[in-house]
Simulated scan of single mutants.
Amino acid sequence: MKKIKLIFGLVLVAGVLISFTAEQKHRKEMKIANASLFNDVTNPFEEVLKDQANEIILVSSTDLNVIEIEEDIDLGIDTSEYLPYGFDAYKGYQIDIADICVLEIEEEVELGFDVNDYLPANFDPYKV
């Protein structure tokens, strides 16, 4: 019984190995066939693109047309039924420029040496 199992296992392994080599040969043949198929196909734009590859094409911003499409979102319900009367989503978002307060914190830079030793006498960087 052991010999039959051993022989069956060897036959199975040999069959698997043979099928892999046959499949690899088939794949190599298909790659060669596909390569020759694509080499025969000509691209009508290829010549034009090769000619334009050496040219510099300048495009200005006025030549470009940008179309922005605003799509309405339809939720399938009337949202005004669920919002309070006089609801304004933008209320409170009107910003007055006078209300903006910008604070600039000047940090003292420590260079590790005295810069006055390297500047001329009475040096003023703000003098015009």
Rank of each mutant, 00 (worst) to 15 (best):
F113N: 05
E108D: 12
A35T: 14
Y82M: 08
L49A: 12
M30K: 10
K5A: 07
Q94R: 13
I57E: 10
K3P: 00
E81N: 12
D96K: 10
V13W: 07
G15P: 03
A22M: 04
V48F: 12
I18K: 00
K91P: 00
S80V: 01
L75R: 08
F8Q: 04
G86C: 07
G92I: 09
P84M: 13
N65Q: 13
F20I: 07
E81D: 11
N39K: 14
P44V: 13
S60A: 03
V13T: 13
L103E: 10
L119E: 02
I4Y: 08
F20T: 04
N43F: 13
Y93T: 12
K28H: 03
Y118K: 09
D74W: 02
N65P: 00
T42L: 11
D117T: 14
E106V: 11
S36Y: 15
D88R: 15
Q24P: 00
K50S: 14
A33G: 00
N54W: 02
S36E: 15
K5Q: 04
Y85V: 15
E71Y: 08
I67R: 12
F20E: 06
N54K: 06
I97K: 12
I77S: 07
L103H: 07
G15K: 01
D96P: 01
D117G: 03
N54L: 04
A53F: 01
L111Q: 05
